[in-house]
Amino acid sequence: MATAATRDTAGTTAYGTPDATGDTTAYQRAFDAAVAADDRIEPRDWMPDAYRATLVRQIAQHAHSEIIGMQPEANWITRAPSLRRKAILMAKVQDEAGHGLYLYSAAETLGVSRDELLDKLHSGRQKYSSIFNYPTLTWADVGAIGWLVDGAAITNQVPLCRCSYGPYARAMVRICKEESFHQRQGYELLLALSRGTPEQHAMAQDAVDRWWWPSLMMFGPPDDASQHSAQSMAWKIKRHSNDELRQRFVDICVPQAESLGLTLPDPDLKWNEERGHHDFGPIDWTEFWDVLKGNGPCNEQRITQRRRAHDEGAWVREAAAAHAAKHHGEARHTGQTGAARA
């Protein structure tokens, strides 16, 4: 028997690890068999170090993307042009904070703390999705983010609900369920603009022009240049290749753009009868790598705001911890803290 059912923050030294001889063969076999059988790997199961490291990297990056992703949209909360839109946008940005929380929790089951992960984000040692290094210049950008960025994210995320790592898959189920409104509100917002005044229509088109290509980049580099893809697919952390998902997204978006009355900024975009898919023009991977390296329009701004919020909040977190230490064990509202009676 061991303590801590859902996680083992001390790492995996105590349980589910090979004996003193260090022979992992049997464990590796059991792990491989579980993955092959589409069984889920759970936190306290033995897993290869590289599998754990890949998951930590991917889940952390995903969590960071959620919380950095709050910024470009929060940028418009105070300027939302109707109270209905304002409520929707606030609820959406709030969801992103919630999703960040679900994901940090999933990462914590692998033996890393949220503080450690935040520290890595703040010091630039872990990344977040490059898409959030682009600015939201007009109100229509809120719509374009919902339709295209969330649309691309959902295309990426739905297969993750079947990811081999249990806590990540469960977090994704919850997130996908909650995010279904995000994309729809974005589409509806753009539709209102597209059918609105000429100025509004132009605003919508401009936003789609700016967000289309970065959205396609969200699926990651082409399969032949993606360094982690093959192993992640073998581990069933990833279920489809980058290019496969990108193609799926393009095929979904083309008719949606038509219904919006907006054009996608790609002269090469056309239906290919033979392939049964849309062909599309070349992606500017130089831009992708450049933004990834930190040279995007908002890299500096995003991380600075994130760090400032964290630093400025330190005294609040310290105060609550100090209060808890002083009043440890004191149950002021026993009816509420006595869970068994609830």
Partner: peptide, 17 residues
């Protein structure tokens, strides 16, 4: 209704067992 439990207070069976 909600219960909250400190994670450290949970005792679990080990996958080895």
């Amino acid at each position: 209704s909600i219960w909250v439990v400190p994670s450290s207070a949970i005792t679990a069976s080990s996958p080895d067992e």
